[in-house]
Simulated assay, not measured.
Amino acid sequence: MKALKFSEIKPLLIFSLLVWLSFGAKGQQDAQFTQYMNNGLFYNPAFAGKEAGYNFSALHRSQWLNYTGTNGPAPITQLLTASARLDDYNIGFGLTFVNDNIGPTNSQEVNLSTAYHKTLGRGVLSIGASGGIFSSTLKYDEWVVVNPDPRIPSAGRETRMNFNFGLGAIYDRGKYYVGFGSRHINEPGFDFGDGAIDNQLMNHSYLLAGYRIRTFALWTFEPSFLIKSVSFNNFSYDISVIATHNQRISGGLAYRGEESVSLLFGYGILRDNSLRLGYAFDLVFGGLEAKSPTSHEFMLTYNLQPVSREFQKAIQRTPRFRF
């Protein structure tokens, strides 16, 4: 195996130090995913059209399975993404839909993303922006309140909607990539119960980086990490290592700071590996007094490569012309 130069690994070393300096987050409002390395578009709009072809993914996460608390069941999340790229213009487009249920609350968001991809040095710099609608619903009949407020109904549900914006950038060098994305930049607010509950969606930022290592016998390894921040006041992190054989079968380990360890599996179903199944199992060890010990995540991805057709000009002969 070829030795790596320090200049090639220096960017990841710097960012890795940030991982160990970070600490557990409180007040995380965004959904969390163990297979974050395969869902870049959720964290960063610059991933829109980053890969060639048409890319689709569907994910279902059951967090803290079978947990039932005072304020309802455990979180359940669905994520749908789609992206495409216009190669002639180096522009990509993406669509993201999230449905997140946590106890008596339900949030849904739809975001459209666009990104521009520019060759820079030996890598590609991608810059993207996103905009959409965020919907927040509060189910009063499932909410247990210690000190009731007469302005807050005891039954029914209430929904508030607002605009939502994000920005991001990625630099992909081939062997490694580093990206930074920021969601809910405008920090939209949602007032429930005649203003009795002021629920503001805080700005969430993500630093995602990974390194691709190709070895003998068709094996590749990709260590990566994700640093999450809420308004740059609280931080948490995920670290993972994925091994893949012949671009078909993959497995790995992941660690979420002070919360869980995870096993990840992936398998390419079709001959060209365009359709893939992914699964992640989380074993929770932190905060078990308010959680169940396991979480499960299922993912299906499909990559449709563009069809290129080459037409050969036929030779036509006439009595006067030949071309």
Score class of each variant (00 low, 15 high):
1 M>E: 14
3 A>Q: 14
3 A>E: 13
5 K>H: 12
6 F>R: 10
7 S>E: 13
9 I>F: 00
11 P>Y: 01
14 I>W: 09
14 I>P: 07
15 F>G: 12
16 S>T: 15
16 S>K: 05
16 S>G: 13
17 L>A: 15
19 V>T: 13
26 K>H: 13
27 G>P: 14
27 G>I: 14
31 A>F: 07
31 A>R: 07
33 F>C: 03
33 F>N: 02
38 N>H: 12
42 F>P: 03
43 Y>L: 06
45 P>F: 06
49 G>C: 05
50 K>F: 12
51 E>L: 09
52 A>C: 04
53 G>T: 03
57 S>C: 04
62 S>F: 09
62 S>C: 00
63 Q>Y: 01
64 W>H: 01
64 W>R: 03
64 W>I: 06
65 L>I: 11
66 N>W: 04
66 N>E: 11
69 G>Q: 07
71 N>C: 10
76 I>P: 00
81 T>E: 12
81 T>K: 09
81 T>V: 08
82 A>V: 07
82 A>D: 07
86 L>Y: 11
92 G>M: 04
94 G>N: 03
94 G>F: 01
96 T>C: 09
97 F>N: 10
105 T>Y: 11
120 L>V: 14
120 L>A: 13
121 G>Y: 07
123 G>K: 05
127 I>Q: 00
127 I>T: 07
128 G>I: 05
130 S>Q: 14
130 S>H: 08
132 G>P: 13
137 T>H: 06
138 L>E: 02
139 K>T: 12
139 K>G: 08
142 E>L: 12
145 V>F: 00
146 V>L: 10
147 N>G: 02
148 P>M: 07
149 D>K: 04
150 P>R: 04
152 I>H: 02
153 P>E: 04
153 P>F: 02
154 S>I: 10
154 S>P: 00
154 S>K: 10
154 S>E: 10
156 G>S: 07
157 R>M: 05
158 E>R: 01
161 M>L: 06
173 R>A: 11
178 V>A: 10
180 F>L: 15
180 F>P: 10
180 F>K: 06
184 H>C: 04
189 G>C: 00
192 F>R: 02
199 N>C: 05
200 Q>C: 03
205 S>V: 05
207 L>G: 01
212 R>D: 14
213 I>E: 10
215 T>C: 02
216 F>L: 14
217 A>I: 09
218 L>N: 15
218 L>S: 12
219 W>I: 13
219 W>Q: 05
220 T>E: 12
229 S>R: 00
229 S>V: 03
230 V>E: 01
233 N>M: 03
240 S>R: 04
242 I>M: 14
242 I>R: 12
244 T>D: 06
246 N>F: 11
248 R>E: 09
257 G>F: 08
260 S>I: 01
261 V>F: 04
261 V>A: 12
263 L>W: 07
264 L>M: 15
265 F>N: 08
265 F>M: 14
266 G>F: 01
267 Y>S: 03
268 G>S: 07
268 G>L: 06
268 G>Y: 04
269 I>L: 14
271 R>G: 02
274 S>T: 13
277 L>R: 03
277 L>W: 07
281 F>Y: 15
282 D>P: 10
283 L>A: 15
284 V>N: 12
287 G>S: 02
287 G>M: 03
289 E>S: 08
293 P>I: 08
295 S>A: 13
296 H>V: 10
296 H>Y: 05
300 L>E: 02
302 Y>W: 13
305 Q>A: 15
315 I>M: 08
315 I>F: 08
317 R>I: 13
318 T>K: 11
319 P>R: 09
320 R>H: 11
